[in-house]
């Protein structure tokens, strides 16, 4: 492929090598890790289902978000707005079919029954995989050129016209075909860049800020995030940013041809979509 002259770019329908081994390995390890971190994290949240801004925050302080059960109804309270969330948040059916009071429902947490201690066991073990995996992937991707070649957003791609054009193409579900599909489009680069360089680092650093031990080592973390409870809120928001990415990611994979996309991320081989006629 590297020797192929420009005029012989692959056309739609041909099988091409799309993802390197490092990308495929990290993708699946990280997908599993993020899922475990999310589900055990929701259980940890269940131990104190209130979020605050600032250095401190406990039951007598005003939360900006809380999930509660009141009179058999589940409520998500954000600021002064209370949303009825019965069935999902606050009050939901357990695996036995009976109604349970729990901020996040049992199907969303690890373990499914209330156990802060067990959730912490999972969360802090997988935290090592998350951090070391991301670091290793970033180093490898820097060395093998993945970041420069595939993720780097070029000057042309930053132009509002180009971005607007890509948004229009996505809205019409017209995805790149043929040789154009060899490269990530700018919206993909935004999404992957946000996960790699914003959401994952943010979720890791805010997690570290919640550690009283690490606060002694790096008090600057508290300054950056505005206190431990602010860090806890940002940790939660970053986690839900990753959930939002996951939802869009899955939708795009399904729309773009799930078997071809999943094969590419498992084996590396990707069939270029046929040109529209």
């Amino acid at each position: 492929m590297a020797d192929a002259p420009q005029s012989e770019l692959p056309t739609g329908g041909t099988l091409v090598r799309r993802h390197r081994f490092a990308t495929r390995l990290w993708h699946w390890v990280n997908a599993l890790t993020v899922l475990v971190m999310l589900m055990s994290g929701l259980m940890i949240f269940n131990a104190h289902p209130r979020l605050y801004w600032g250095r401190y925050g406990a039951n007598f302080d005003r939360p900006w978000l809380q999930i509660e059960a009141r009179g058999g109804k589940g409520e998500l309270v954000i600021g002064r707005h209370a949303l009825n969330a019965t069935g999902v948040l606050g009050v939901s059916r357990g695996p036995d079919g009976a109604w349970h009071e729990a901020p996040f429902p049992s199907w969303a947490t690890i373990p499914s029954h209330y156990s802060l201690a067990d959730a912490r066991l999972w969360h802090f073990a997988f935290a090592w995989v998350l951090v070391l995996g991301l670091l290793a992937y970033l180093v490898v991707s820097l060395v093998n050129g993945h970041i420069r070649r595939d993720l780097h957003i070029t000057r042309g791609e930053w132009s509002p016209r180009h971005i607007w054009h890509d948004i229009g193409e996505h809205a019409r579900l017209r995805f790149p075909t043929g040789a154009a599909a060899l490269k990530y489009n700018v919206l993909q680069k935004f999404a992957y860049g946000a996960v790699l360089f914003l959401l994952l680092p943010l979720v890791i650093l805010t997690g570290m800020t919640m550690s009283p031990g690490l606060d002694a080592a790096f008090p600057g973390l508290l300054t950056i995030f505005g206190g431990r409870q602010s860090a806890r809120s940002l940790h939660f928001l970053a986690a839900f940013g990753l959930v939002a990415f996951f939802v869009v990611h899955i939708v795009m994979v399904v729309l773009a041809g799930p078997l071809n996309e999943v094969r590419a991320m498992v084996t590396g081989w990707y069939r270029l979509p046929k040109e529209r006629t």
């Binding site: 940890i44 131990a47 104190h48 925050g57 039951n59 802060l116 009283p212 606060d215 409870q229």
Partner: peptide, 12 residues
Amino acid sequence: TRHDCVEGWSAI
């Protein structure tokens, strides 16, 4: 100092 409960809340 800040007292951090394992549950997630903090009080100074």
